[in-house]
Design a protein around this nucleic acid. Structure first.
Lengths: 142, 142
DNA sequence: ATATATAATCAGTTTTATTGATTATTTTAA
DNA sequence: TTAAAATAATCAATAAAACTGATTATATAT
């Protein structure tokens, strides 16, 4: 392309800006996750299970916006990696309760560190005030 | 899930907030695009071609982060919809120059309107000052 | 002239997620 | 209390999107 920089029209569009900023975070996130042998869909589930120990597959799916059959696959993968365990719910045996293993908890900590690194790297151009305002604005939109 | 609202930990993470805000925009964008028979990967290309008339398939690919073979497919689809045309570059016949048809230009206008609607809807909770600051911050991060 | 490089294309594959049917279990309602 | 309806997880088949690697046509460099 003659001009690889972003065009004025695009720089003027919130949809475009958000998409690109979000992708920038995602790309960096993915690179760091690959280094610890994870894909982002695994990390995502580990984060959810960490803050909702014993959650069901279905509810993890709701949280990460994946359907029930996709969750079976992802949970299978995480179980094969020994990062989570399925335990049949004693009150309702249709459910599995999902828990992090010790390895899973350690990996959670690493994922958390990665998040911190990415945020401090990519938000470096902002002042502290700007960072706080940025977060407030994002929460307002959500 | 017991508590479907977002957890404090997640609300405190820029990665998470950005991802979710960006998804919120995407979802609404997709709904509106479906109404005019487009997928977001088509709209994306129409926007690029609109502001870079005659651009090559490869360079569109660079702009929308898709590889050469994927671009062949998407351009084929857009051509079948009569929204763009391929014309062999007279200076270097390895290239196709891609142009919007009249239909394509009309659809571009609709896509632009959709963007405006989405932005004014989703950014409604923000004050004018906040909107301006938000855009400045996004540009700084990019 | 010959070798190298590049844009577009095609066939085949991979990845990710979906649909629809099935099993096991629980809840509802007659 | 028992038969019907509902629900969580699973499985097989399929779909959608993108990629890999080989091929063709053309252009550039030595």
């Amino acid at each position: 392309m003659d001009n690889m920089a972003f065009s004025n029209e695009l720089l003027n569009s919130y949809v475009f800006l958000l998409k690109n900023v979000s992708e920038k975070f995602d790309e960096m996130y993915e690179i760091h996750l690959n280094e610890i042998g994870l894909k982002s869909r695994h990390a995502e589930v580990i984060l959810v299970v960490n803050s909702n120990s014993g959650i069901s597959q279905k509810d993890i799916g709701t949280a990460v916006k994946k359907d029930r059959t996709t969750m079976v696959k992802i949970i299978d993968e995480l179980e094969a990696m020994k990062l989570i365990t399925r335990k049949t719910d004693t009150k309702d045996r249709r459910f599995f309760n999902i828990y992090l293993t010790e390895n899973g908890e350690e990996l959670y900590k690493k994922i958390f560190e990665i998040k911190q690194i990415i945020e401090s790297t990519l938000l470096a151009p902002l002042s502290d005030m700007e960072k706080i305002q940025f977060k407030k604005t994002l929460i307002k939109i959500l």
